[in-house]
């Protein structure tokens, strides 16, 4: 009897896990559709802005919005974008592993975004220069502190997660300068007339407009990468929750079977006892 109660309690607990994983799966799915839409919207904005910028300047002159007097650290900066917490599958481990394969403490510094990544680096015994929390909101992400850091280094590589499909997420690394170029590929082919002081009026001045645009391009490119990472993390969470739900469902089914068998066995035992009791009374 006590065994039957035990199995019943386990089945109820498994039921709760199935419900919980379903809720997490639903939340992740909702966040995916929201973020996916935002990534697309943001890409369109970036493309149009880049189209204007590319007519103003050629790629080679892109200088991270630095002024000539600014000192540059002769090292490479790695920015690694991970998730804030658990329930995000194995994608953070994959990302850290990829980054550490390229890492040399003498040549590179690390800035980590996301608590999960910071913990994994500490566990691996790798020190990092700074840690930022992953922005909880998906809009108007403030990347200025990161841009400030990136500007002080000669080169910046960003390690991030990309969304391939709902069940497939990948790890990517990209040069922050190339991030701008990559995003601009779709529009770079167009042959438009060059924007210069000859055919345009600039206010307050050409230099100020271009410098502002340059800084903006960096910020938008970095925001895009963070947003894409978040999308991949939501998808990874969805995948993990989906798998957990399937596993919990399987366990629930086997517990149900065990419960029914135990119940049947208990009933059979009682029946046997009753029959034996009846036999004994007849013999007596």
């Amino acid at each position: 009897m006590s065994r039957l109660q035990e199995v019943a309690a386990q089945r109820v607990a498994m039921d709760t896990i199935v419900n919980l994983t379903s809720v997490f799966e639903g939340i992740a799915s909702m966040r995916i559709s929201q973020t996916k839409n935002q990534v697309q919207q943001s890409q369109q904005f970036f493309s149009e802005l880049w189209n204007i910028y590319s007519q103003l300047r050629v790629d080679k002159l892109f200088h991270y919005g630095r002024t000539e007097s600014e000192k540059v650290i002769d090292k490479q900066l790695f920015i690694v974008i991970t998730s804030e917490g658990g329930f995000s599958g194995d994608i953070d481990q994959k990302l850290i592993k990829t980054m550490l394969a390229d890492f040399n403490a003498e040549k590179q510094d690390i800035i980590v975004i996301g608590h999960h990544g910071a913990i994994q680096l500490i566990q691996a015994g790798v020190s990092f220069k700074k840690y930022f929390t992953l922005p909880s909101k998906d809009r108007n992400i403030n990347v200025l502190p990161l841009i400030k850091e990136a500007r002080s280094y000669k080169d910046t590589v960003v390690y991030y997660q990309t969304y391939v499909s709902l069940m497939v997420q990948d790890v990517k690394k990209i040069d922050l300068f190339n991030a701008v170029q990559e995003e601009a590929k779709g529009v770079a082919g167009k042959e438009e007339e060059i924007i210069s002081e000859r055919n345009y009026i600039f206010e307050p001045s050409t230099f100020e407009v271009v410098a502002h645009l340059e800084r903006s391009m960096m910020q938008i490119a970095l925001s895009q990468v963070i947003l894409e990472s978040k999308l991949a993390q939501y998808a990874s969470r969805f995948r993990a929750m989906s798998m957990a739900k399937d596993r919990a469902n399987q366990l629930h089914d086997s517990l149900s079977m065990l419960y029914n068998r135990t119940k049947r066995r208990t009933q059979d035992e009682r029946l046997k006892e009753m029959i034996n009791g009846l036999r004994k009374t007849r013999v007596a």
């Binding site: 204007i52 924007i195 055919n199 345009y200 009026i201 600039f202 206010e203 307050p204 100020e208 407009v209 502002h212």
Partner: peptide, 19 residues
């Protein structure tokens, strides 16, 4: 409004870029 003050843009305006 930009750094030089308020302004209007009407159709057939010259190519223009401002903060």
């Amino acid at each position: 409004i930009n750094a030089t003050g308020p302004f209007d843009i009407l159709p057939r305006h010259h190519n223009f870029m401002t903060l």
